[in-house]
Computed example of a mutant assay.
Amino acid sequence: MFYAILAYHEEEVVSSWTKEEDTALMTELLEINERLVREKTLGPAARLGPTGRAVTLRGKDAEIVIDGPFAETKEQLLGLYVVDCPSLTAAVETARELRRANPTAVYEIREILLYLPGAPLSASAES
């Protein structure tokens, strides 16, 4: 079963990290990522850009474009992982491991009802 692990954090906290602090955290998270890839349980993962550059589509036929993500939460969605786990319990344990690396983040685990892998993205998508 596929699960999405959605990573939430307060953008102000994340943007306050020094380059060294951010690099150290990403190094630890990428070690988990690499292990999950070796175990063939990790699908796509992404670190999202700032919400200040996000837009939201609203209205009938999505004709209205509004600046910002308009999340009704203190934290913002900053990234996501797609994992292939045999159960919700296993997906929760994977999220716990990610949280040990980033203890101030919040991780939401949701079952994926439809998974379409799409086409491989070019390296230009990595930024």
Rank of each mutant, 00 (worst) to 15 (best):
F2R: 15
F2W: 05
Y3D: 11
A4K: 06
L6M: 15
L6G: 00
V13I: 12
V13T: 13
T18A: 09
E20L: 07
D22H: 14
D22S: 11
D22Y: 14
T23G: 06
A24T: 14
L25I: 15
T27A: 13
L29K: 00
L30G: 03
E31Y: 11
N33D: 12
N33V: 00
N33Y: 08
E34P: 00
E34I: 06
R35G: 02
R38G: 08
E39K: 11
E39Q: 14
K40Q: 10
K40F: 12
T41N: 02
L42W: 15
G43I: 05
P44V: 02
A45I: 05
A45E: 05
R47G: 12
R47T: 03
L48Y: 00
L48D: 04
G49H: 13
G49D: 09
G52I: 03
R53T: 09
R53C: 00
A54T: 12
G59N: 02
E63D: 14
I64H: 08
V65Q: 12
I66N: 03
I66F: 08
P69H: 07
F70R: 02
A71Y: 08
A71W: 12
A71G: 10
Q76E: 07
L77Y: 06
L78Q: 08
G79R: 04
L80P: 00
V82N: 01
D84M: 06
C85G: 00
C85E: 07
S87L: 04
S87Q: 12
T94E: 04
A95S: 13
R96V: 05
E97M: 02
E97R: 04
L98A: 06
L98I: 05
R99N: 13
R100I: 05
R100H: 08
N102D: 13
N102P: 00
N102C: 03
T104L: 03
A105E: 05
A105K: 04
A105R: 09
E108C: 03
R110M: 01
I112K: 01
Y115W: 15
Y115T: 01
Y115N: 12
L116I: 10
L116Q: 12
L116D: 15
A119H: 13
P120S: 07
P120Q: 07
S124V: 04
A125L: 02
E126Q: 07
S127P: 01
